[in-house]
Design a binder for these strands. Structure first.
Lengths: 258, 258
DNA sequence: TTGCTGCAAACTGTTGACAGTTTGGAAAAA
DNA sequence: TTTTTCCAAACTGTCAACAGTTTGCAGCAA
């Protein structure tokens, strides 16, 4: 339901939040501005302008900028300022691979630790998501893009690992991918089908079938990455030296391995 | 050779570095102060004092603090300041698991992408490290602790994946673990033996044997984590709800799986 | 002695101003 | 016209001072 981790809600967020310092509030708002496209990739952040817009001084703003740079959303250049990070294709691939690394291990932890109730809750959520995907713009709720839903499922799944370090890193990676891909994406066709793959993964997790779950998840992520490469106009074979996508997943025999 | 990623070298680093801004220099120095124990875990950072020590004003210092907080080395508390992060046992476990997640996937990438020469170079490095470990404090070089060497090998291995995102995340995780463990560690006995395990992993990687390499690496990391738990005075069975160590590794049949 | 209250010192959060670098265009040279 | 030089405007990096919160202790009460 809550997709606000990736895109800001309709109303602009209130500047007033109890206990939070101006620096932190600025950080949150700035992150949203980067993720929802208010600040476009490659764009330079004029400190004076933005500080005026947000009604803060440059001090807290600069602290927020440092933080976001550490998260990979901004890029700092000495004496030239901060720019919204613009990811090169090979960087997107690297980030994708990091996502795979985190999720493949996370799903193993989920199988060991998540309760049946938690998994059931996720299954229901996925079913609703599936239903709302069929009824294209039917409901009154402004449905988030399929990519947001995609990331949302993965993030929830990873959270069930109980490992907050991996979950936090995963969120950061997803933010980077969202920034990198949301502005290139054209053909979102395949995203629709991924719900089915999610359901398959979740079913395997519910059966506590580690081999099947990891294999299915890896296949899903590989396909997703291939799709990304295609969107970027890159062919798997014409990728710069040594940065080709991995194809471990295709070796797996899925359900027969149970 | 270069262990400066984890511990500062003998001489204190020069404040003067061409092109780097005061903020960045402060960040680097502060990171070293945290990692080498000049600032102890749990200790509060007095901004005025530290700013005076480093000969900078509070502005750049605060920017550096924000950055290090993002790296998990400092913890910020509103209106109370920054503290050197003190990791709870369960957080150490979580961080360890994240390290495992990254390295297990990284080693697969290494097998696909690293050149024979790169692997050979790492093998030689490991051999030297092994030799210097035997000659306890024999050479003139002030040998870094075994834990530093341990992390150094892993970091170099991960770097050979060619994935800088994973490598950067791995370095950050290793920094956190170094901070968390270097102050609790007493029995470093087992660290000595890990060199042999490193050699085994590397051999499997050199043979491009993915199954063996990942299995060996996982076993090594699991053992290392168990050792860590023991040092922390935690028994695998008495770990708080659901946070027990995973034991995937022991299921693997190593070389026969080739 | 023990516990509570209130104040003052210390410290963090924030701001506005100053200093040095970058940048883009005007003016001069080719 | 094209290229180069130079300067001024704009902007980032840094600093010092102000404001509001936290904290610890002195003084008072029980």
């Amino acid at each position: 339901m809550n997709a606000s981790q990736y895109v800001s809600p309709a109303g602009s967020p209130s500047l007033i939040r109890r206990g939070a310092t101006v620096s932190r509030q600025t950080e949150t708002i700035l992150r949203e501005m980067v993720l929802n496209g208010t600040l476009a990739p490659g764009e330079r952040l004029n400190e004076v302008t933005i500080a005026d817009q947000l009604g803060v001084s440059r001090g807290p703003l600069r602290e927020a900028i440092q933080k976001l740079a550490g998260e990979g959303l901004l890029q700092l250049e000495s004496h030239r300022g901060a720019f919204v990070r613009k990811y090169e294709p090979h960087e997107i691939i690297e980030t994708y691979e990091m996502r795979i690394a985190l999720e493949l291990y996370a799903v193993r932890l989920v199988i060991e630790r998540a309760s049946d109730d938690d998994l059931e809750a996720l299954r229901i959520l996925l079913a609703e998501s599936s239903a709302s995907a069929e009824a294209v713009s039917g409901g009154g709720i402004p449905a988030p893009g399929p990519y947001v839903a995609e990331l949302d499922f993965h993030q929830r799944l990873v959270s069930l690992s109980g490992n907050s370090a991996i979950a936090a890193a995963s969120l950061e990676v997803n933010h980077r991918l969202f920034l990198a891909l949301t502005h290139t994406e054209r053909s979102q066709v395949r995203r629709q089908h991924s719900i089915g793959e999610h359901q398959e993964v979740l079913a395997a997790v519910s059966r506590r079938d580690t081999a099947a779950a990891t294999a299915l998840l890896e296949d899903h992520l590989e396909i997703s990455m291939q799709n990304t490469l295609a969107v970027l106009g890159l062919d798997p074979l014409e990728i710069p030296q040594g940065y080709g996508p991995t194809v471990h997943g295709s070796k797996h025999v899925l359900k027969t391995e149970v």
